[in-house]
Design a protein around this nucleic acid. Sequence first.
RNA 1: GCGGGUAUGGCGGAAUUGGCAGACGCGCCAGACUUAGGAUCUGGUGUCCCCGACGUGCAGGUUCAAGUCCUGUUACCCGCACCA
Length: 799
Amino acid sequence: MKYDFASVEKKWQKIWQDKNVFAAKNDYTLPKYYALVEFPYPSGQGLHVGHPRSYTALDIVARKRRLQGYNVLYPMGWDAFGLPTENYAIKNKIHPEIVTKQNVARFKEQLMSLGLSFDWNREINTTDPDYYKWTQWIFLQLFKKGLAYKKEMSVNWCTSCKVVLANEEVVNGVCERCGGEVVHKVKSQWMLKITEYAQRLIDDLDDVDYIDRVKISQKNWIGRSTGAEVEFDTTAGDVLTVYTTRPDTLYGATYMVISPEHPMIEKWAGQIGNMAAVREYQAVSARKSDFERTEIVKEKTGVRLEGVKAVNPVNGKEIPIFISDYVLMTYGTGAIMAVPAHDTRDYDFAKAFDLPIIEVVSGGDVSKEAFTDCATGTMVNSGILDGLSVEEAKKKIIEWLEENHKGRPKVNYKLRDWVFSRQRFWGEPIPIVYCEKCGYVPVPESELPLRLPEVESFEPTDDGESPLSKMESFVNTICPHCGGPAKRETDTMPQWAGSSWYFLRYCDPHNPDAIASKEALDYWLPVDWYNGGMEHTTLHLLYSRFWHKFLYDIGVVSTKEPYAKRTSHGMILGENGEKMSKSRGNVVNPDEIVREYGADTMRLYEMFIGDFEKSAPWSSASIKGCKRFLDRIWALQDNVIEGEEYRDELRAAMHKTIKKVTEDIENLKFNTAIAAMMTLLNQIAAVGSINRREFKDFLMLLNPFAPHIAEEIFEKLNFGGMLTENLWPAYDEAECVEDTIELVVQVNGKLRGKITVPADVTKEDALAAAKGEVSAAVEGKNVVKEIYVPGKLVNLVVK
RNA sequence: GCGGGUAUGGCGGAAUUGGCAGACGCGCCAGACUUAGGAUCUGGUGUCCCCGACGUGCAGGUUCAAGUCCUGUUACCCGCACCA
């Protein structure tokens, strides 16, 4: 009888749903396990085969944990605000709410068809006012604590989407989403002070179990560096402060460079002799897009400020000041001391402008290139520092600077504050009112959610203002503070807002009075295992850690970190090994795979495709192997015999497989777990039959991977109740060992034979047997060394 | 340039502390059943000059023994990119 996966899968999906089998219990006395996958953006394209890789992996973990007696929370929801939906809505003249509803329905149906054990009672949607009420509430708390502020700043402006982008959304100088040109534009933006949390975001990584590459990426992104601020007097009278990681090279500073946007330029305008040239350079820099700026990275340009000089604090020498766009206003103080002998950029600039290069650290050849090594050099030409190592010199010069009030130690971060405004319709309205008299006033919490107005047109404006700005009934309001006329903020939040706290809402998703009840949060948090893509390491993951830490600070949550463990899956590539995309024509549709092979086969294949953490190309040929595996298990029903215990011929195999599958699931080694089950099946086939006990435990192991077929056979064989109500099988380490083992016999390290010996063989017996096995090869030669590795091999070294 | 990663049969990939290289699967070959096979079952399948030798990107080294450790090197992928 052939296995009819289509009807069986539908049958069990309905039973699971009707009986609420996977609902997390609100009994906070039970041992809990919170498994989380990144909730998808419900795009118009429907589910991608990449989605189920992550979802199936943690579904396996969740199902296994339930069988191990845990109260498991494995939820799903929709990160549904965002540009593609809005663009689609504009283009097709449908309200984004309707588009979202349609896309969610499609996604949900697709996820359901995969038999994922989500607790659908806890489904959330970031565009639901009952949800974004709390996104807005968190923003208000940030505002009240001074962590949300408005700032005039140069922002990344996508000329195609007509929207401000975060730095993280600009890729290679173009818009991450549409590939449109990105230019700079000065706008007043809401900002979140993530930089205030930079050090804690680094430090607390020590307390969580994230895979190394995620920790390293986050640290690099935050980009902590230690150095010093040094104050340079100028002939204009003002002090120019620079940041440097190499204060030891202060004697080698032969000129200074400030950013073209540096405010001191305006202050000095009257004293700068060549102000026209300076203004021209400023204008050219401002016009450059990020793309142009990175394109012409090679040659250094700049303009010398005539009439103003700086004074090196260590030796009183006057040195020239330049403006150049290789110095960024957004990092450090926007000004540097240039030490061409020991910094490659300064070196290039000095060469281009024919400036003196003074060696202050010996060890390199500064006539050829900058010597930047901090580990080996010795200080020279440096007065009080001469003869010291770089590290010693750093300490000594900082002491000197502090004593003479010319500087201090300083830590800097590359991380910048989070640009939180978007000039778009389909996002959470920022709940702030602007009053001429009172300034920025928060919308009272009792008025949340501040809903998006119900309008028909929400096209972006050409001047870069939000579509909301044209909706007068929305804009015009009353100041909550003074009662006078006021205007609402018309920008909306970025897509990252709703996803920065969604895992909290799952704990208590229908609570009207709070993000979630304190009891629910205290019970479920932290998330025990969070899996998601590497592409979210520096954005979503960092943002949500930031928000969580803030919520910890104001007493909403009780854990410093949201996620105890973070893993990351590799991408599934197209058959040609390239990233799947419509334009490459290599997209695999999960619906078709489910239709042709069934959900169990699809799940199994995605887990078997390769190392979970690495990317792997799809193969429509290989998937058959997984189908065959399930068909062969189905066929085992014809060879079932009675039996309450494992038979001798399968005992070790059963124990070993249980051990392997149990451990591999914890270590993300789903592919070898499946291989182990295939091996067990081959052993069963060799024996010719399977008894009821063996089959039952086999089905338990199979269940997390291929739940439908496992449940069906479990029911057909009357093992009692639903499989999901049973317990994960245990293994006995002692039983994993076979009675006899095979030892490899090597002569001079080369394989020359194999011997079968009792598992508890003595060294003497093993050596004797080995010598007998390879007598021909050892004949007439001197055995100079005998190596015996118990359970593995015997190596005879002969001469 | 910096950071992270990868390199193993025709293909996807296995391989605790160094200990049988190629588990498991795909594909391929042969056979069985069959009117038929793109179904199923059984056996085989790293390469070659096949009782032997060679073989984990490349070149060295350590070791009784190296995919694994050390030194050097190449190619590709991902991320960041003038961060002082």
